[in-house]
Design a protein around this nucleic acid. Structure first.
Length: 851
RNA sequence: GCGGGCGUGGCGGAAUGGUAGACGCAUGGGACUUAAACUCCCUGGGAGGUAACUCCAUGCCGGUUCGAGUCCGGCCGCCCGCACCA
């Protein structure tokens, strides 16, 4: 008998599916629809194992749902704008467009051999003018609806290259190319008003029942709702316009522990003082060093300066507090000003200690006495404490009660107001870069900022640009900027900022429902296909991409581009883990690390093949090119076929966890698939025994597998589905069942394997005389009668330790079980004539005798 | 620094609060073969014991429970995110 030949079989079935148009999505009102979407890839040029895993998971779901009778939409596209294309143009010359479309062609060629059930007729790239032009149209609608505005915001500024840097281009506070110390600089930029939706984006999380709890938690914390007090300190002899400093606090109950007022380096008052005071100006310049990330700001050394200004305490006009500028206070959060209570905030405590500011406890633990603190006392808000410097409410109350009574007190006395605030900031979408969607507005000397006319869309990126110097090529293009004002017709200048690529990925799921339409969406298509029933992607997108998409769907609904039901675009979310691999490292003579590709090392000997150097083997880490711990899926497909690659990434690791790629694992998978093929062909050639009991046993095992595989796919536990298929294969191989029953069992198994190894499954299905494509055959149903077991084995525990077992009829009453247990040798021996203290019988599960 | 998650044999992992280690890999032994490859069978956490069996074991420490890998508290380590990487 011949062997299984994936290279021939796989191309054969892919061509057959194509010819039959099996994966073309059709709006079919007669059938329920199912929209499965994996996060679309960035066209880096090569697919990696993470892609294979991501798209195989989606494919398993898509094919399974197809078999279950759904009209399935399973599209693919490219998140094609972004920095790497510009970097490539800078490093190697060429145009970002050519680089990007070339990469897309390469990656498509690599993905097609995987045999994914994708409707390629819907493919698009976000850098297609047909796509970004529709995005510009929606931007104008959103501008019109008041969802977009301009304000100042800080960027990473490289003072040598005179250019804006992305956060990832800042390394240890320095620009990656120039090495210059990065500064924070303000620019006028475009923003989406996502903060208007903060409350709704938060409360709607409760409705996302099929999202991972951890993602909902992360988003909730990111939105960061807080209840607090907003009030003003009256200043003493302050500059005009700063008679008051407005602060926001979530702990108004600690007001009597205030020892200073802190303002952000970006606070208007700080800017005013900067102009008058060279010493403060120097300090503020110091504060502005470093990148803009919250991480950089939070981990930087906490520094401050006394402005010399004083404010009056709202509860005691004779009590004056100093006003400090502190680098850890964010202008974007609250009012950009706080009062510091060192006794009950660790950061304030460290600040106060450093600058010798007073530390006065407001409350102490219930039953404790006031004493000098060596660190901030920060009990849970739900814990009861005794207020020694309280001003509202009972002496002993919880922090929560303290906050509530303090707000009520402030409102009653009229010096403050209880407010709800969010940590979520508006979404800055301006990028000072070329390779993105142009923001379709015009700056007119007479009319100001004017939206481009819709009939002039798309505002296309010019092709004649160079990347020989840093900065935005649109900015220095000789003619592209020049235009006439859409309103008055006078000479005007185009906006040269482009959009954040998160905008592109915030609505692509909607575009897939009508990818060629001349409007952003088409009502009937959006209505039929939305929402995405199952969205699959990496956990690294838990916050930004998913939150922006949730906002954008709402904004699209407000501007008439999506139905109301689609404001939460993703019904179910699954976040998959990474594909990892060991890292092979040696060190060069200068002590620098040198990494080696898996194929260049002898894993057994622990050496580099070429040189014989001893390797340091670093356990599983995310595959990355720089660490060279990458396995190219194309090599695996060439060696073993796509089914092996697909089955391997579904095996072993639960999908939400990282999976370790091992060469031996891939080989074992390939052997297994070969074994299944062989068994199938033996059956096709008439193999089989004639035992009646074996027939029944095999059908029972097969239906158990149907049940397990079905439940596993439904529950995204593909590794368990794989395990069930291994078990069934072992049973089938050993079974002495008749050929007819074996044939039936193997056909059912081909159906169960189909979503994971579609080519092999089609081949087996055809060999055993199945009708049509296995992918279109109705999904088998487990016969409940074949799933029940008549008897059950119960372990007997004595004091929680397993000491024996009994086998009893499944539905034996507990009282009967007790009798058998008490007569059991191990139990009799342990009791030594005495009585058990307690006898626990968990029906069908376990028995525990407590002595 | 802040937010979230994870941690089980040599390895990947399984286990509605109920027999820890399903299924697989690697290892060791055997069959087939002139030999090898392929394939098939057996073995398979650690320690002790001829054996029946006993003890230890789910990152560490403590708690709840008849019973904890699972729940709670505290630590340690790793991973993801932190708003201009995508």
């Amino acid at each position: 008998m011949s062997r299984y030949e994936p290279s021939q079989t796989e191309t054969k079935w892919q061509a057959a599916w194509d010819d039959a148009g099996v994966f073309t999505a059709r709006r079919d009102p007669a059938r329920p629809k199912y929209y499965v979407l994996e996060m679309f890839p960035y066209p880096s040029g090569r697919i990696h194992m993470g892609h294979v895993r991501n798209y195989t998971m989606g494919d398993v779901v898509a094919r399974y749902k197809m078999s279950c009778g759904f009209s399935v939409l399973h599209p693919m596209g490219w998140d094609a704008f972004g920095m790497p294309a510009e970097n490539a143009a800078m490093e190697r010359g060429g145009h970002p467009k050519d680089w990007t479309y070339g990469n897309i062609a390469d990656m498509r060629d690599q993905m097609k051999p995987l045999g994914l059930s994708i409707d390629w007729s819907r493919e698009f790239a976000t850098c297609d003018p047909e796509y970004y032009g529709q995005q510009q149209a929606m931007f104008l609608d959103m501008l019109d609806a008041g969802l977009v505005y301009r304000k100042n915001a800080v960027v990473n500024w490289d003072p040598v290259d005179m250019t804006v840097l992305a956060n990832e281009q800042v390394e240890n506070g320095r620009g990656w190319r120039s090495g210059a110390l990065v500064e924070r600089k303000e620019l006028t930029q475009w923003f989406f008003k996502i903060s208007d939706f903060a409350g709704e984006l938060l409360s709607a999380l409760d409705g996302l029942k099929d999202w991972p709890e951890k993602v909902r938690l992360m988003q909730a914390n990111w939105i960061g709702q807080s209840r607090g007090l907003q009030f003003s300190f009256d200043t003493v002899d302050a500059p005009e316009g700063f008679e008051k400093i407005e602060v926001y606090t979530t702990r108004p109950d600690t007001l009597m522990g205030a020892s200073f007022v802190g303002i952000s380096p970006d606070h208007p008052l700080a800017k005013l003082l900067e102009a008058q005071n060279p010493e403060l100006a120097e300090f503020l310049a110091e504060c502005r060093k470093g990148g803009t990330t919250e991480e950089a700001i939070e981990t930087a050394e906490k520094i401050g300066r006394d402005t010399g200004l004083r404010v009056k305490h709202p509860l005691d006009p004779n009590w004056e507090l100093p006003v400090w500028i502190a680098n850890f206070i964010l202008m974007d959060y609250g009012t950009g000003a706080i009062f510091g209570c060192p006794a009950h905030d660790q950061r304030d405590f460290e600040f106060a200690t450093k600058y010798a500011l007073p530390i006065n406890p407001v409350f102490v633990a219930e039953g404790a006495e006031e004493e000098a603190l060596t660190e901030a006392f920060v009990p849970m808000k739900s814990e009861k404490v005794r207020y020694v410097r309280g001003f509202a409410g009972a002496e002993v109350q919880t922090g929560e009660e303290g906050v509530a009574t303090a707000i009520a007190y402030a409102e009653d006395k009229g010096f403050g107001e209880g407010v709800t605030k969010y940590r979520l900031r508006d979404w800055g979408l301006s990028r000072q870069r070329y390779w993105g969607c142009p923001i379709p507005v015009v700056h007119c000397p007479a009319c100001g900022v004017v939206p481009e006319k819709k009939e002039n869309l798309p505002v296309r990126l010019p092709d004649d640009v160079t990347f020989d110097k840093p900065g935005n090529p649109l900015d220095r293009h000789p003619t592209w900027r020049d235009c006439s004002c859409p309103k008055c017709g006078a000479a005007a200048k185009r906006e040269t900022d482009t959009m954040d690529t998160f905008v592109d990925s915030s609505w692509y799921y909607a575009r897939f429902t009508a990818p060629r339409a001349t409007t952003p969406t088409v009502a009937e298509d959006a209505d039929y296909w939305m929402n995405v029933d199952q969205y699959i992607g990496g956990i690294e997108h838990a916050i930004l991409h998913l939150l922006y998409s949730r906002f954008f769907a709402r904004a699209m609904h407000k501007t008439g581009h999506l139905p109301a039901k689609a404001v939460e675009p993703f019904d179910a979310l699954f976040t998959q883990g990474m594909v990892t691999h060991e890292i092979y490292k040696t060190t060069d003579e200068k002590g620098r690390p040198v990494y080696h590709l898996p194929e260049d090392v002898d894993r057994e000997a622990g050496t580099v093949k070429a040189t014989g150097e001893t390797l340091e083997i670093i356990p599983s880490a995310k595959m990355s090119k720089s660490k060279k711990n990458v396995v190219d899926p194309m090599n695996i497909i060439a060696a073993f076929g796509a089914d092996t690659a697909r089955f391997f990434v579904m095996s072993d690791s639960p999908p939400e966890r990282d999976v370790e790629w091992t060469a031996s694992g891939a080989e074992a998978t390939s052997k297994f698939l070969g074994r299944v093929w062989r068994i199938a062909h033996e059956i096709a050639e008439g193999a089989g025994g004639e035992g009646v009991a074996e027939d029944a046993a095999l059908m029972k095992a097969t239906h158990k597998a149907i049940d397990e595989v079905t439940r596993s796919i439904d529950g995204f536990a593909f590794n368990k589905a794989v395990a069930a298929l291994y078990t069934l294969t072992n049973t089938m191989q050993k079974s002495g069942a008749s050929n007819a029953v074996k044939r039936e069992a193997m056909k059912l198994m081909a159906q169960l394997m189909g979503p994971m190894v579609p080519h092999l499954a089609e081949d087996i299905w055809a060999a055993l005389g199945g009708d049509g494509f296995v992918v279109q055959a109705p999904w088998p149903k487990a016969d409940p009668a074949l799933l029940v077991e008549d008897s059950v084995t119960l372990p007997i525990q004595i004091n929680g330790k397993r000491r024996g077992e009994i086998t009893v009829p499944k539905d034996m009453p507990a009282s009967e079980v007790e009798k058998i247990v008490l007569a059991d040798d191990a139990v009799v021996k342990a009791l030594a004539g005495g009585q058990p203290k307690k006898l626990i019988v968990v029906p069908g599960r376990i028995v525990n005798v407590v002595i």
